[in-house]
Design a protein around this nucleic acid. Sequence first.
RNA 1: GCCCGGGUGGCGGAACUGGUAUACGCGGGGGACUUAAAAUCCCUAACUCGAAAGGGUGUGCGGGUUCAAUUCCCGCCCCGGGCACCA
Length: 862
Amino acid sequence: MEVSLRRRGDLEGVWALAIAVWTVNLSASIYMSKRPVQEIEKKWQERWEQDGVYHAQNGVSAEKFYGLVEFPFPSGEGLHVGHPRSYVAIDAVTRKQRMLGKNVLYCIGWDAFGLPAENYAIKNKVRPQDATQKNIDNFRRQLKSIGFGFDWTREIDTTYPMYYKWTQWQFLKFFNSFYDEVEQRARPIEELPLHLNKDDYRMAYKAASTINWCPRCKIGLANEEAQGGTCERCGNDVEKREKAQWMIRITKYADRLLNELEGVDYLEKIKAQQINWIGKSEGAYVDFVIFGSKNHSDKVTVFTTRPDTLFGATYLVMAPEHPLVATWLKEGDVKNQDEVQAYQSMSAGKTEMERMAEGKEKSGCVLAGIEAVNPANEASIPVWISDYVLAGYGTGAIMAVPAHDERDFDFAKKFDLPIVQVVESEDKKELPFPDYGVAMNSGFLDMLPTWKAKDDMASWLKENTKGEKATTYKLRDWVFSRQRYWGEPIPIVHCEKCGYVSVPESELPLTLPEVEAYEPLDSGESPLAAIRDWVEVACPTCGGKAERETDTMPNWAGSSWYFLRYCDPHNDKALASAEALKYWMPVDLYNGDMAHTTLHLLYSRFWYKFLWDLRVIPEECGNEPYAKRRSHGMILAQGGEKMAKSKGNVVNPDDVVGEYGADVFRTYQMFMGPYDQAVPWDTNGIEGVRKFLDKVWGLFENAESRIENVELETLYHQTVKKVSEGIDELHFNTCVSQMMILTNGFVAAGGVPESMREGYLQILAPFAPHLAEELWAMIGKTGSIHRSAWPSFDPSKLQASTFTLVVQVGGKVRAKLLVDADISEESAKELALNDENVKKNLDGREPKQVIYVKGKLVSIVV
RNA sequence: GCCCGGGUGGCGGAACUGGUAUACGCGGGGGACUUAAAAUCCCUAACUCGAAAGGGUGUGCGGGUUCAAUUCCCGCCCCGGGCACCA
């Protein structure tokens, strides 16, 4: 106390001096006083909540703005400094939109089901419910301390039964719908033509699927839980296993998910990722007649993107799992049965790790006794099996054209198979592989290379019933089952008589029962299977003996539609009312991690399109959920490494907010680098931002406001323009630096002119909302600054009265002259030519040409 | 291998539609205030030759277009991310 009083005293002396000569820079000690920022911030956070400053209004006619950030998974570690980056950014965007008078929807919630919570519960012997609740409380406290403009009355939690009631309800929609190929949309299953079997057409269906199996944990893993071929839980290598799983027919939407990207504004690389994942390729199916098997009508269909190279197909390769191979083995058609079976079991036992380690080294086994006929030239070619052919893509079999495919080439070299090039008539210049010529000489097939254009070949195949045009996708149907406890129970009952039956809507939510242990069972089933009195139920249709589905839904389920729930979070009649959806959807700006731009984005777009088809989402909302999608770069640890608990370099927002306050934290997050790029955290860098905000405080606490200064006015209008546009473009770092420039201008001038005070605080408000609010009150304004009107700039005041005219001679800068903004071309040129240094560099030469660029430069060509 | 990004001072990064390269911040150097330190403020700073005036070089590398290129074109190199034996 004493110290600060003494400083105040010092300050007065300095201040007298500053008034005497107003250009004198503000003295150091003005900024010294330690303000209790955390208290001030807390005060406003409470006030905002009380006054409902950030509440979104349903049922109004005002223009809306829906800003969305990915809701977090509330982990036990708490928020880390990377989490809030996008929250701060979209907070700034939505604050500006709110100040433009729009009705803003900006919410947060918890994506709280999932594996880590379950593992934590198992390890620490607590209920996942309790652990999750504790984590949510911690996350909520942390987020609130940063002062986001979330509408907290709309907070959602995917594990809350009134939320997952609707997740389950939507699953039943999938179960009770089919895809109408003609109309290209989903329709209720009751509308399926009567001659078709409903169970073959449901959008959600149960089928055997290959899963990643961890033999140590005895558990099935989703692909994303088994990345790199190892178990996320124990690090053991995973194997492939067949298991009956719930699947969703996302593949029916492949073309729409691809084509309708054209109507949305996504970052180019995000679109590219969606396109890659869908993996559409166009080509043809080609039928190869088989001889050597007992069934004389056997044929193998292959998919190729290069039907024009059919003449170069010198052998056939099938995946070891191909069903025809099993048939031929059973029938005794294959002469080298033992060898083939050995190869099959060898490749089935291979883990992902082993496959990857093998790289390009090809393996395989010929099917002795089986031959195929190349439909283009009737040549007889051998048939092989190899695991470089994937069972799950195309038809599970390929025609090998070693001259035109590197993998086929490797295989042919290894097993000494013939290589025949297909050339475009006379054009033999471009050989696909350098040593092709050598390989060609070893070929024994006496075929003359011929050529047909891709489309010609496809139609030739069609005419001769030897194949047809075809399109394939990498996208697979969505495996929707998890053998786990901590997820939404799948509301399906299996009846011996009726098959799979929906749990009646009236019984939703089907709540997760309490269990003794959360570990999966030895059988690989979810722990729910152990609760017999929960599993055993009467069939809802016939009343007979039936069993509940014990699989739960994947984490993706709850996050596929949460943005719809924000629109109307307390509705108990529907997932959201049609009016609310019509008003709020689509999302105007969606931001999230680059890590979620493939799966989550694809799943939620698909989910939305499906609900839209069924008109659960009104038609007016449009066919895409997110009008605009952006992603933020990662925050790295100091030094550029990834932040990781194991490396001990994680920065906790609590510490930063505790030391500097939320405003400094937020502003630094926006200043540290381009929003879409990865940037390392810098403990020194944050000091610079603290100094900046301290200067702002100082300007309002101590400095003069009766200042008139034309240059400041220009700078002010330029800054308002830059910040207004920068927020829309997500160029936050340059917004902050521009505000720093303006602030430095005010400091140099000795204060903020009266006419600029409000606007100055208002442009600061999206970045440092507490500080702006406090100073807004300090200058006597009533009502929240965050509900005030966004300032405008005067375009006529953007131009300074003078500018630096650059003079170039022969492309090199030879002079910089300060001139009036309205200087005429003639006088500018004259001034330039008369400059001493310009004359010296001209060295008596006559200029060939003098170019004048208004407001910029004079370029003298010699 | 394929598809996206990106390469600018000691560091994070600015630069509109081709028109002063390095704004803003960090760190460095020098100075003021202080008994001293911290804090704060001021000055300084791409590299290089020069006392200075001024010159030369400079945005990953090599070419090109232009009065003028970080920006446009051609050919490479490196880094980050995504996908990956996808026929």
